[in-house]
Amino acid sequence: MNKLLPFLALAAALAAGSCKKDNPDAGLPPATQEGKNTGGCLVNGERFVATGWGGDLFSNPTPPLFGGFSFDSVYTVDLNGQYKGENATLTLFLKNDVPKTYLLNKDTPYYPQAVPSRVLDHATFTIDGVSKSELYGTNSTQTGKVVLTRADLRAGIGSGTFEFTAASTVDRSKTITVTNGRFDRKQ
Score class of each variant (00 low, 15 high):
residue 108 T to F: 01
residue 96 N to Y: 08
residue 72 D to E: 13
residue 123 A to L: 04
residue 111 Y to E: 06
residue 132 K to T: 10
residue 140 S to M: 11
residue 80 N to G: 03
residue 116 P to A: 12
residue 156 G to A: 09
residue 98 V to F: 08
residue 100 K to C: 01
residue 126 T to C: 11
residue 129 G to D: 02
residue 88 A to P: 09
residue 97 D to A: 12
residue 139 N to V: 13
residue 59 S to R: 14
residue 153 L to Y: 10
residue 92 L to A: 04
residue 98 V to T: 12
residue 60 N to Q: 14
residue 118 R to P: 02
residue 56 D to W: 11
residue 100 K to G: 00
residue 138 T to L: 04
residue 136 Y to V: 07
residue 157 I to E: 00
residue 67 G to R: 05
residue 143 T to N: 12
residue 142 Q to F: 13
residue 55 G to L: 11
residue 74 V to M: 06
residue 146 V to D: 04
residue 60 N to K: 14
residue 131 S to R: 13
residue 63 P to E: 05
residue 143 T to W: 05
residue 80 N to L: 06
residue 138 T to P: 00
residue 111 Y to F: 15
residue 107 D to P: 00
residue 115 V to Y: 15
residue 87 N to L: 10
residue 126 T to V: 08
residue 56 D to C: 10
residue 136 Y to K: 05
residue 90 L to A: 11
residue 67 G to P: 03
residue 115 V to K: 15
residue 144 G to Y: 00
residue 80 N to A: 09
residue 133 S to D: 10
residue 117 S to D: 11
residue 69 F to D: 01
residue 144 G to C: 02
residue 141 T to N: 04
residue 119 V to H: 01
residue 72 D to G: 06
residue 144 G to A: 03
residue 123 A to T: 02
residue 120 L to M: 13
residue 76 T to N: 15
residue 64 P to V: 03
residue 93 F to V: 00
residue 138 T to D: 00
residue 105 N to W: 07
residue 63 P to D: 09
residue 60 N to A: 15
residue 68 G to K: 06
residue 72 D to V: 06
residue 113 Q to T: 08
residue 71 F to R: 04
residue 121 D to T: 04
residue 132 K to S: 14
residue 77 V to A: 03
residue 69 F to I: 04
residue 159 S to P: 09
residue 70 S to A: 15
residue 109 P to T: 06
residue 53 W to G: 07
residue 152 D to I: 05
residue 92 L to K: 05
residue 136 Y to D: 07
residue 121 D to V: 03
residue 107 D to F: 03
residue 101 T to K: 14
residue 64 P to M: 05
residue 151 A to M: 11
residue 156 G to H: 04
residue 83 Y to P: 06
residue 56 D to K: 08
residue 139 N to C: 10
residue 80 N to W: 03
residue 81 G to A: 10
residue 74 V to I: 07
residue 132 K to Q: 13
residue 114 A to C: 04
residue 98 V to A: 14
residue 82 Q to S: 15
residue 107 D to M: 01
residue 92 L to E: 10
residue 79 L to M: 13
residue 133 S to F: 14
residue 127 I to S: 08
residue 82 Q to K: 15
residue 116 P to G: 09
residue 108 T to S: 06
residue 151 A to V: 10
residue 75 Y to C: 13
residue 150 R to H: 08
residue 80 N to H: 10
residue 82 Q to P: 01
residue 133 S to E: 12
residue 54 G to E: 14
residue 72 D to L: 11
residue 55 G to K: 08
residue 151 A to D: 05
residue 87 N to P: 13
residue 62 T to F: 09
residue 70 S to L: 14
residue 122 H to P: 10
residue 112 P to I: 08
residue 65 L to H: 13
residue 144 G to H: 00
residue 124 T to S: 11
residue 131 S to C: 08
residue 62 T to V: 15
residue 81 G to V: 00
residue 67 G to A: 11
residue 84 K to S: 14
residue 97 D to T: 00
residue 81 G to D: 04
residue 123 A to I: 03
residue 78 D to R: 15
residue 106 K to D: 13
residue 102 Y to D: 02
residue 77 V to K: 04
residue 109 P to D: 02
residue 159 S to N: 03
residue 122 H to M: 07
residue 79 L to K: 13
residue 98 V to I: 12
residue 140 S to K: 13
residue 129 G to N: 09
residue 135 L to M: 13
residue 63 P to K: 07
residue 139 N to S: 15
residue 129 G to Y: 00
residue 83 Y to S: 07
residue 53 W to N: 07
residue 150 R to E: 02
residue 156 G to S: 02
residue 146 V to I: 12
residue 123 A to Y: 00
residue 85 G to W: 14
